[in-house]
C-alpha cells in the first residue's frame, strides 16, 4: 500500500518543531506501524534525509516504550493496543497519517517523536513502592490475600507506564497512571502500612511534575493499551481524601 505520512520533526527540547511530509510505497499490510517507520527510515537514508526518531523497544506491547499519537489518538485507532502491535492492515491504501509525539508539558520532546517520560519515574520514586528490606520478607504464604483483592491489584499493576493516558487527556493529567500505581499497592495488605504516606507523596510528585488536573473525561482509560479502569482514579481520590483528613486530625 501507498501512504502519505505527516510526521512531527523537532531537533531538540528547545527547538520549534514542525511537520514534514513523506510518501512511502509498497508498505506491507502485515508490517507493524513501527516496521512501516523502519521502512520509511531506510528510504530517508537513501534520500540523504536523517531518519525519524521514535521510541520503541520490546515491540510486543509490554515494555511501554513506544508512543506516538497517530491521527490524534495515542497508540493509534485500535483499542487495547500499543503502537508496536498496531498493524498496517488497519489503514487503507492512499491514507494520510499524521504522527505526533505524546504532547504534555511534563513530557518534553527529546527529539522528533521521542519524549522524556521521566516524570513517571519521579512519581514512583515518591512512593510507588513497599518498604521491604531484601531478605527480611516473611514466608510468601504468611499473609493470605483475598483473590478478589489480588486480581484487582493485578488489573492495576498491568499498567506499562507508556503515557498514553497523559497524551490522550485534554489536560495532560497523569491520574490514571498514578492511581494505577498507587492502587496496585494500596489494594494489597502488604501495602497498607504505607498507604496514606504513599498517596500523599505520589499525588504531590504528580502535581510537581507539571501534569494537569483530572476532569473525569475518561479519555485516558479509553486510550490505555491495558484498559486500566477509571475506578483506580476514584480509589486514589478516596484514599487521598482519607489520608488528608487523617493527617489533619492526627
Amino acid at each position: 500500500m501507498k501512504l502519505i505520512l505527516k510526521i512531527w520533526r523537532q531537533d531538540g527540547p528547545q527547538d520549534e518543531g514542525d511537520f514534514e511530509i513523506h510518501q512511502i510505497d509498497q508498505v506491507s499490510e502485515d508490517s507493524s506501524f513501527l516496521e512501516m517507520l523502519d521502512q520509511l527510515n531506510e528510504q530517508l537514508l537513501g534520500e540523504g534525509i536523517e531518519p525519524i526518531l521514535f521510541d520503541h523497544d520490546c515491540r510486543e506491547g509490554i515494555c511501554g516504550t513506544c508512543s506516538l499519537t497517530i491521527n490524534g489518538l495515542p497508540h493509534g485507532p485500535e483499542n487495547s493496543t500499543t503502537t508496536c502491535q498496531l498493524h498496517m492492515r488497519k489503514f487503507s491504501d492512499g491514507d494520510t497519517i499524521t504522527i505526533e509525539p505524546f504532547r504534555a508539558r511534563a513530557f518534553p520532546v527529546v527529539r522528533d517523536l521521542v519524549v522524556d517520560r521521566s516524570a513517571f519515574d519521579r512519581i514512583t520514586q515518591a512512593g510507588g513502592f513497599i518498604t521491604v528490606r531484601t531478605g527480611s520478607a516473611p514466608d510468601g504464604n504468611a499473609l493470605p490475600v483475598p483473590k478478589d483483592d489480588s486480581d484487582l491489584a493485578m488489573d492495576a499493576a498491568a499498567c506499562i507506564g507508556c503515557g498514553a493516558c497523559v497524551a490522550s487527556c485534554k489536560n495532560a493529567s497523569a491520574m490514571l497512571f498514578t492511581s494505577a500505581k498507587a492502587g496496585h499497592l494500596n489494594l494489597l495488605p502488604q501495602g497498607k502500612a504505607e498507604k496514606d504516606k504513599r498517596v500523599l507523596a505520589m499525588v504531590s510528585a504528580m502535581d510537581g511534575a507539571g501534569f494537569g488536573n483530572c476532569r473525569n473525561y475518561g479519555e485516558c482509560s479509553a486510550a490505555c493499551p491495558k484498559d486500566i479502569s477509571l475506578d483506580y482514579i476514584a480509589k486514589l481520590n478516596r484514599d487521598h481524601a482519607k489520608a488528608k483528613i487523617k493527617k489533619i486530625f492526627s
Binding site: 513497599i130 531484601t134 516473611p138 499473609l143 483473590k147 486480581d151
Partner: peptide, 22 residues
C-alpha cells in the same frame, strides 16, 4: 524460595487461590 517471599512482600500480584494463598 527467598525470591518468592521477597517478591510477595514487595507487592508482586502473583496469582492466588480462593483461600488467598499463592
Amino acid at each position: 524460595t527467598n525470591i518468592i517471599d521477597q517478591c510477595v512482600a514487595q507487592g508482586v500480584p502473583f496469582a492466588r487461590e480462593y483461600g488467598g494463598l499463592l
